[in-house]
Each structure stands twice: as C-alpha cells, then as structure tokens.
Design a protein around this nucleic acid. Sequence first.
DNA 1: GCCTTGACAGCACGACCGTTCGTTCTCAGA
DNA 2: TCTGAGAACGAACGGTCGTGCTGTCAAGGC
Lengths: 198, 198
Amino acid sequence: MPRPAESTRQTILAHALGVAARVGLGGLTIGSLAEATGLSKSGLFAHFGSKDALQVAVLDAAGDHFIETIVRPALKAPRGEPRVTALIDRWLAWATEQTGGCLLTAASFELDDQPGPARDTLVKLQRDWLDTLAQAARIAMREGHFRADLDPDQLAFELHGLMLATHEMARLFRDVSATSRARAGFARLLADARRRPD
Amino acid sequence: MPRPAESTRQTILAHALGVAARVGLGGLTIGSLAEATGLSKSGLFAHFGSKDALQVAVLDAAGDHFIETIVRPALKAPRGEPRVTALIDRWLAWATEQTGGCLLTAASFELDDQPGPARDTLVKLQRDWLDTLAQAARIAMREGHFRADLDPDQLAFELHGLMLATHEMARLFRDVSATSRARAGFARLLADARRRPD
DNA sequence: GCCTTGACAGCACGACCGTTCGTTCTCAGA
DNA sequence: TCTGAGAACGAACGGTCGTGCTGTCAAGGC
C-alpha cells in the first residue's frame, strides 16, 4: 500500500481544525479543505465517506486536542482546589493564545437546533468538560478546600459561563481586558466556594 | 404601485429570524428563505440587493426584537436594582419560551472570525446589550442598592456569562434545570453586588 | 514475475448557491 | 385612458456543494 492512510487523515484533521475555527463547522466544505491540504476533493472524501462523518471526526479531533492541552496537564496538579485552578488557568492560557476561536464553543451554539451525529458528539464532549469541572470541585470539597454545602455542578455551570463570556469578549470584541475580567470572575467564584457557612 | 414593499420586507425578516435561529446566519440561504415566505428568489433578493445586506437586516431585526421584548419593558421598572432584576427576568423568560435559540448569541460565536458588515453590526448590538446591563447597575449604585465600589462592567460581564451558560444548557443539553441554575447564579451575583464592604 | 490491496487523482453528476436580466402585473397620477 | 413606477416573477448565469465511478500508481505477499 502507498502512504499510510492514518497520517494523511491526521493531516486533514489538523487543517480542518484551523479552517473550522474560522468559518465554523457548517462553513467547513470539502472543497476548501481539499485545497488547504493539497489533496483532491475525492481523495479527501474517501477518508471519511460523508460530510457528516467528517464533521464528527473534526469534533472528536477538537475534543482530543482540548483534553490533551487542557485537561490532562491540569489533572497532574494536586487534588483539590489546585486542580480546579489548574483547569481554569490552562483554559485561560489556551483561549487567549489561540488564533481562531474555540471550535467546540462555536459549534455549541451552531448545532443546538440541528439534530444529527455531529450534535450528539458535541453534546457528549461538552458534558464531559462540565463533568470534569464538577468532579474537580467535588474532590476539592472532599479535601476540605471547598465548603461542604457547595453545589459542584452549579460551580461548574458558572465557571463555564465565565469562560463563554471571556471567549466572546476576546474573540468578538477583541477586547484585551477579557483576561482580567475572567480572572476577577474566577477569583470571586472560588472565594465563594471556599467560604464556610457560619 | 402594488403591494407595499415595507410590509413584504417585514414578512421576509420575520421568517428569516425563525430560519436563522435554527440553522444560523451562515446557514440562511436566499432560496430557502424564498420558499418559506412564498416569494421567488429574485423577488426576495430585490428587497436587499445582496446577501450581506440581508444578513445585516436580519441582525438588525433581531436586535429590534430583542430590545422590544426585553430592554424596553424592563426599563419601565423602577430605577436601581428592580430594573436590573427586570432585565434578568425578562431575558430568562424570553430565553426559555423561545423555540429556536437566540440568533444574536449564536451569531456572536459564528462571526467572531469573519470580518464584514454583518460582524460589525453584531458587535454593536452586543456592546449595547452589555452597556445596558452595566448602565442599569450604575444606576443601582447611585440609588444605594449596590455597593459603591462595585465594578458595573464586571457585573455585566458576569451576568452575560450566566446567560450564555444558560443558553447552552437549555438549547444544547435540553436540560430543564437550566432556569434554576441560572436563577441561583443571578441571585449569588446580585447578593455580592448588594453586600457592603465592611 | 505477477497479483492483490489501498491511497489517491480525474471526471462527471445533480442540486443548490448568489446574482443578473428581461418581463409581467398592478396600481397612482395625469 | 394612458403612462410610468415599482413589486414580483421566471429563466438563466457561472460557481460550488456533496457524492459517486473509474483509473493510476506504489507497496507488500506469493
């Protein structure tokens, strides 16, 4: 057999992440992606079999990349609050240095009314992320860093909200103060989680 | 002259808001919109002159609708914190009862890397919304409802973050607890704004 | 040496895209 | 009654979309 298919596939997906970050998952077309990778339309198409499958593959690749650059490194931090802050810091660093916006975030608002395999994949990825945040908070409760009556899912919800607002402020408004706004919000949220009820 | 152009234009835009809420602003096509309104493609096209202009018109219509159903009624509430809560409550009611997602929110993450008149229009609309929230908070500070050292822009930023998270939870996850999660978040945010530093 | 296998290219398809153009119809004013 | 403005139509344009079909070329197994 000629070139290994797997490496070509990875090359395609790497380019796809860049293109989709700019034009969204719906704006990603096989023709433009073929041109970006130097492949022919049909040659590229053969790797996925359908546009739906390509979209799912792109989302999975984005999820893997997200886990690899944010979640996995952060999980090396000590259990408890340090791990929660590591997740936040990793996310902040990634969100600010990245050229295009976060594909998964954009897709969340793009696919919310378009049933299909792509949407299903995305729901799972986003749920996992919220669960990761909530689970880290739960551990921090067990370690005594966070108060015992904290609702970890609520904390995850609000953390995620701050991330969404940060993303919009940085990407849409091109506002450099997004990072400091985010840090202030996170600090307030963590302080509230720490504070014991009297 | 035959049928008044303005009423036709309004009909088109009303349909466009529904379609775009489902498939996004980029997924909105002249052909599908013509079919939805019962017009011919060329007949519809003549009302706007270009796809760009149509997108801008749709965004403006969405902005008008947003102001009419949320901002204007809320501004009738008494100055200060009641007005802030009115804005929040109006938004919550609108977000939950609405069939499709919020077009403006979806567009914020769709257009953030696509320069053009549509993006410019959207930036202005979203800035206005954040300014409205911040301004209401500023008034609440002057009325003595909120603490004097509050950062109203930071509050608006965090309020908006909660709205984004609520939107995602309700629309993507179809999670009915989104509303209660939102209310809990808003309550905590307002309590913090109220509390005087000692 | 063939033969299989699999990764790609080339080409063509039907459908739809945004856009243009000429035509038809209907009304308001003269 | 005639005229002209303007709303809407129908057909067509060049492109691009996603998707198939066929062919080519290189690398193993025999």
